[in-house]
Design a protein around this nucleic acid. Structure first.
Lengths: 330, 330
DNA sequence: CATAAAAATAACAACGTTGTTATTTTATTT
DNA sequence: AAATAAAATAACAACGTTGTTATTTTTATG
């Protein structure tokens, strides 16, 4: 049989309500009795019953994370980080890999206190719902009814271009996906364009569509760059971790040295960037920071009554590594 | 306020215990009243309270899945399929991406009825535990104390070699990872070796270490194959979906036609195999079957008292597609 | 048409907590 | 040392279900 507070009460010689208070460290019970009860509980291997607690407290201290696209390494890393970030809180996290509707049902059933939704391309279709939630995604132009954590892709690209510009680069090419509905990707391209304009580099602007976000997409895109007669870039910005990995590989295979011949800067700020063939300079909100912010946001949304800033744009960080350097003197 | 069975009872003009029975479709309540109650419940938007139910029933109808490595596409597909498989059962599934210990804690807290553990390389360290579980992994030589679902990698390789042999191939090379503790991978290599021996092809045996399971690992391994003077294979077996994708790409880039110059068969039987550049012949337990078996196994483990077969070896299926065909006549 | 049997419904005690109220014990004051 | 205030503990009603037992209603039987 499992041990309940009543069992503890019997052994400790107190009432079970006192046990409850002691276990919750209530100031209403004397230190000495607290210690005694805690000791007994420990000895008996007491494990609180979540269901019973939940039944009276009307909350679970659990957050549900909806994760429809399960295959991208960067998102996987983010999920892992979010999970880790919850460890320092009183909440735990469960995951659903189902569709938004099915996931919603599961979370409703579990009566999670809040939800984290990965926005990506698909619009969030939950307007008025009892469960508080936050979205990780793009804030866009039009206002929202729900809170959004925005990694600020535009500012990232701006920083990337700035970094390269200050190193002396002018011929900066962007490789990324843009034949997509994924607002995240589109913002990156726009950010690049704006930044190039800002630094007066419009005539050097070159955007290569990788037609995807994977390793191979970056790998093949390099061909397109090299085929372009005349305007060869001295620096490339890759639109995602995987894309940049492919770019790096392709360049290396062709005997093009990074960063001596071409500098490479990647979007996505994850630890894995440090362990690429050539350690990669990258921009983006560091994934652990991003995770912290998301966790913070949902908890605040749950616990605080105020509904102030709906959109939280985070500041990206540039982490300089070996893949970027000054251009060769021509 | 949320509606409870007492609210429904009041509106329907019956006692709440009758409502409970009606909602559980008990034969103890008249069809007519059942219908009436169900209608009222529907109208009032009743949602059962899992915590209350759990408190009295002592079970959650929830299974926890431990998923330590979230980055491999094949495992991701498997998880998605398992999740789908649960939809036809009375159970739902939650996921944890934490370490085995942390995940265990979460699952204990939730009082899941059972757990699914992805064995992979790491030994399962839960010997005597109150929560029933099954492991997806390799059964190995020594017996276990816990039930294992084994996809039977050896038999897969055997089938792959047989398929190619019967098409007329002799020179069959295996590309996969084997400098690893991952028992799954090692079994594949052993399976290949045994099969080659069985068909008298020992002198053609060639094993290339991909040093990894990813796209790029397969891609680069092709170089090693082609560098080998003399013994050029007419067929290649790739050790995983990603590896084979890389192999396919590398071959195509070098102008080597699949399957005219070289046939390619891949391990891993997932739907994505049909949509590679050249649709891929593959072997392995189809991922939906595998998911079904895993789900079946854990449910049986929970619901049935008998403890019969601990190890369940599944039969792999060969799905022939365009990437394999008879060798060119020399 | 009374009566027993069967069917349908109602009543109520669990389940393991929390939080509020009531009671007892201890400390403080006169 | 009695009266009172404060501190500590005990008692008990929730929370929303299920399942068992008790009661009422309906149906079958002689």
């Amino acid at each position: 049989m499992t041990v309940t507070i009543k069992d503890i009460a019997k052994v400790a010689g107190v009432s079970y309500s006192t046990v409850s208070k002691a276990l919750n460290n209530s100031p209403l019970v004397k230190e000495a009795t607290k210690r005694k009860i805690l000791k007994v509980a420990e000895e008996m291997g007491y494990e609180p019953n979540l269901a019973a607690k939940q039944l009276v407290r009307k909350r679970t201290d659990v957050i549900g994370l909806m994760w429809p696209t399960i295959e991208r390494i960067v998102l996987a890393t983010l999920v892992t980080n979010i999970s880790k970030a919850f460890e320092n809180t009183s909440y735990s996290m469960i995951l659903s890999v189902d569709s938004q509707e099915t996931a919603m049902e599961t979370f409703k059933k579990f009566q999670v206190d809040g939800m984290i939704i990965f926005g990506e391309s698909n619009e969030v279709s939950i307007t008025q719902d009892p469960i508080p939630f936050v979205v990780y995604g793009v804030s866009g132009k039009n206002e929202t009814s729900y809170p959004i954590i925005d990694a600020n892709h535009e500012a990232s690209m701006q920083k990337a271009v700035k970094h390269l510009y200050e190193l002396g680069h002018r011929n900066i090419t962007y490789i990324g996906q843009f034949d997509t509905k994924d607002a995240l990707q589109l913002e990156k391209v726009e950010g690049y364009e704006k930044a190039m304009k800002q630094f007066g580099l419009e005539k050097y602007k070159q955007i290569i569509d990788s037609k995807g976000l994977n390793w191979f997409d970056g790998y093949t895109a390099v061909e397109k760059v090299l085929q372009n007669e005349g305007q060869q870039p001295t620096a490339i910005i890759g639109g995602s971790y995987d894309i940049s990995g492919g770019i790096m590989r392709a360049l290396t295979e062709k005997g093009i040295s990074i960063p001596n011949d071409i500098s490479l800067v990647s979007y996505d700020n994850i630890p894995q960037m440090a362990t690429t063939e050539v350690p990669m300079t990258c921009i983006g909100v560091p994934v652990d920071v991003l995770a912290e912010e998301i966790v913070h946001a949902i908890i605040e949304r749950i616990e605080s009554e105020e509904r102030v800033e709906l959109v939280k744009k985070l500041s990206p960080t540039l982490t300089a590594r070996e893949s970027s350097g000054p251009p060769r003197i021509q």
